[in-house]
Design a protein around this nucleic acid. Structure first.
Lengths: 217, 217
DNA sequence: ACATAGATTTAGGTCAGCCTAAAACATTCC
DNA sequence: GGAATGTTTTAGGCTGACCTAAATCTATGT
């Protein structure tokens, strides 16, 4: 019934919906790295199981039941990430792939004990909110650093974990969750910026800035 | 290449060999709870992959390569059991099933960090030795409590984790790893015994005694 | 030594999750 | 509004891990 594939598909759809994008066959195929035809196949099965709404050629949308699966999976994923960092000394760029596997073999009991041992954390090491057992997500309204103007003073509240190389780079230049930084310059022609972190200044490309989410202080 | 099934089959064979029993089709089918024909199927594939020697109708034996897989899997299993008990407060009767799933999704890096965080333990919560990374097992020569005579004073060095109800029962009557106990009586007709643990006496059936392994003190 | 019971293997099938190639549909552009 | 382009689905196949039923082998008892 519950399979690794199912959880991965549901999660991918949830993420696309979260970004405001339509969960189309090709978008999912890209995300999950399988052929388009395989997506159509699987989507039909998930639709039969009531996890999503499917209208041929129209993309899919999660049902309430599907969203519940997504949130439960995300919760386990983020608890594992937290555990790997806090208990086993992993760095934030190493945890995603491990958690990706662990999330699928986590009983309710294990999930609960992890949560407890970690002190019921509300965000994971990248600042992503950990959904509650009941499926409530505490989304903080943060904006991308790429959208901030020169002169702003901001605090990092979240870093996208899609690309581990960006995470490595970020920590190398001293960026961590809750770091404060000041935008010294912003180039209009390529979106790059120069920011001050602590006492040092660093160049940040648009790509990196887009992966960093901040709150104004 | 590496699959959950593969690891489970190899482990089951390793365990039978360890008990001095021949790894026959039906023994494996019983252990793994699949049909006899499925065992034959799988055995052929594992044989082609060089993990075991297979002669039709003669049962199987692990090759060196197969033994390596068994030990690596067992190592991960026991590290996880240790972790669940020490870090998350699980009791020793709850950890087997969880570890059974976690062992299959554990990278070398994760295995190493677990080992380190646990202080490089040599046995798991049931007293089973944890194989080293190189595949060396430190088997302690212990004998079953069922074989001990009345009057003996012994120390528990290992308890079989095959049956979680026995584990629950054992801890309820105060038996834990390294507990000392004295055999007060032993009935010849059913193998049951009365033992003294701390200041209390308890009745122990043959079945329970067979699951407990001890060293003389 | 031979029938027979029990264990094992073969034959043929299912299901999940993938694939490629071809067909059907949707969109966009003149 | 119809051809070209891109997206999605259908059709047909494959593989791993299982299954049942039937055939075959081994071992046992007299």
């Amino acid at each position: 019934m519950k399979s690794i594939s199912t959880e991965d598909y549901i999660k991918a759809i949830y993420k696309l919906e979260g970004k405001g994008e339509k969960a189309t066959t090709s978008a999912l195929a890209g995300q999950l790295e399988v052929a388009d035809a395989s997506i159509t196949d699987m989507i039909k099965k998930l639709s039969e199981r009531g996890l999503l709404h499917y209208e041929p050629y129209q993309g899919v949308e999660l049902t309430a039941k599907g969203r519940k699966v997504a949130l439960a999976t995300l919760r386990r994923h983020r608890l594992w990430e937290m555990f790997l960092v806090q208990f086993l000394g992993f760095s934030w760029d190493m945890v995603h792939d491990e958690a990706e596997r662990l999330e699928h073999v986590t009983s309710d009991e294990l999930e609960h004990q992890l949560d407890k041992a970690l002190g019921f954390p509300s965000v994971d090491p990248h600042g992503d909110p950990i959904p509650s057992k009941e499926g409530v997500v505490n989304d903080t309204a943060s904006s991308s650093l790429a959208e901030c103007e020169a002169g702003s003073v901001v605090k990092i509240s979240r870093v996208s974990d899609d690309n581990s190389e960006i995470l490595i780079h970020a920590s190398q230049i001293g960026l961590a969750l809750n770091s404060k930084l000041t935008i010294k310059e912003k180039k209009t022609f390529d979106g790059s910026m120069v920011v001050k972190v602590g006492s040092k200044q660093h160049f940040i490309s648009k790509e990196v800035a887009q992966a960093i989410f901040v709150e104004y202080v």
